[in-house]
Design a protein around this nucleic acid. Structure first.
Lengths: 249, 249
DNA sequence: CGACATGTTGAACCTCATCAACCGACGTGG
DNA sequence: CCACGTCGGTTGATGAGGTTCAACATGTCG
């Protein structure tokens, strides 16, 4: 339990936290933040490591400080479907449930800030701002989940792959200050393996690989190495992703 | 606007409402309930009627009093995917957004109790119990959405259809006091057309029809007429739906 | 009765899964 | 240092599961 990947927080840690204002903690006053600091722990997970197991009792919640976390559903016969992708400063864990409804895995090296679930739920109970913020995040996740349901149910393999690349590209440009939509070329590393993408898209590894190659051949994206991708024109990508529809979301 | 399908509530209407305790209103004290009564309206929608349009400004929220409501995503080229199914006493509408993120249609004749969105959000703001309850409902919807993502991404057509029938059967038995899981035979009407089912399952009408016929031939279900279905043994149906897995959900 | 919506069934086609071979990068141990 | 296994990724051949197109059955309503 107590290895070198776990670091107890200084009581002042939250005050200087990089994601403080964008994470759910943003709702907390200094005094409550100190309370949270006292019960919080930084923890590092390396690529592929399991963070939560489906069906296990809920013991902690966490904020993603950096990295990408996959939420997976698994069936008895081994089929797997990723049902959520969390980036900083997303919240990890299902509030008000005694068991995790899914697996959570580190898709790449991940840093989280975790706290015991009872204490956090108590805090939510007394701090309506915190619960309100959790509610907001949950609403956004639900919106995302529903958009993804459309993708899973109705999009072709090519559109699926294009959609995922577009999502990563635009999220990346949002974070990394890379040029905006349609201008210049955006280049970045995919934070996911082909297997991760397949799990998320409801496809097989091979199909993902083929569609990436096809997009590359068509010039919609440029595969530089396995992971490194360049997108010459985000709006073209959005087009082949079948994205500009859905009431101009 | 003001047709005979709309009925202004009596100020006492909520107090005697059938779904009062199970709907979000259950969080309200008598006085607040009276406030809600004053701004609420019963409204009837008939089969197929649109209740909310994607992209339209949010004007009202509603509780489903009876019937089934479909939430649909639609793309420019006409593909459609149902992303949610609401039964009484579910809540209809996306809180804290100025535009609807999907269409809502009456899957069968529907009765709702609707109220202006600003007033309701104001009420939520002042009543933490109400917001808490909304939050809970949203968490449940998110869980359901994620289970459905697994279905859309990984299940076969047969499993999809079996899952839907199972869901309706168990929900029906829950509502209608029909015998419990595995015992005797449950019989009921499907509240959805083949087209509705196809939209929800990410399939075509034809495939749904074929799979229903196949399940019928296999004896897993009995098709009595187009809409009337009997399930001799719910657990067998659950098995062919690939349901008992997922960590014994 | 005819018109229309809903549902079923058949045949052909196509997308994607499956199985399999192969490649390059990396790490490890003899 | 090289042989070896492993892992992530690509590509090809084949086939199954669903879509598509089309015809037909059934039911309902004017």
């Amino acid at each position: 339990m107590d290895d070198y990947n776990v670091v107890k927080l200084q009581s002042s840690a939250c005050a200087t936290c990089a994601i403080r204002h964008r994470a759910v903690c943003g709702a907390l006053k200094d005094r409550e933040l100190a309370t949270l600091s006292r019960m919080g722990r930084f923890k590092r997970y390396s690529t592929g490591e399991m963070i939560l197991a489906d069906g296990e009792p809920t013991t902690f919640f966490a904020n993603i400080v950096s990295g990408v976390v996959r939420l997976d559903k698994t069936s008895a016969d081994g089929r797997q479907q990723t049902v959520g992708l969390l980036f900083a400063p997303d919240f990890l864990g299902r509030a008000y449930a005694d068991h995790n409804p899914y697996f959570a895995h580190a898709a790449c090296d991940v840093m989280v800030c975790q706290f015991p679930h009872e204490a956090f739920e108590r805090l939510m109970h007394h701090n309506n701002g915190l619960e309100h913020r959790m509610f907001q995040k949950t609403l956004n996740e639900l919106d995302a989940a529903r958009d993804w349901m459309f993708l899973l149910g109705r999009k072709t393999a090519k559109e699926k792959v294009a959609t995922l690349v577009h999502m990563i590209a635009s999220r990346h440009s949002h974070i990394g200050c890379t040029p905006q939509i349609g201008l210049h070329e955006a280049q970045f590393q995919l934070p996911l393996t082909r297997a991760d993408m397949a799990m998320f898209l409801g496809l097989t590894i091979e199909t993902v690989s083929r569609q990436l190659s096809a997009l590359n051949k068509a010039g919609t994206i440029r595969l530089i190495s396995g992971r490194e991708v360049a997108v010459p024109d985000l709006s073209t990508l959005a087009l082949t992703a079948g994205l500009d529809d859905i009431a101009a979301a």
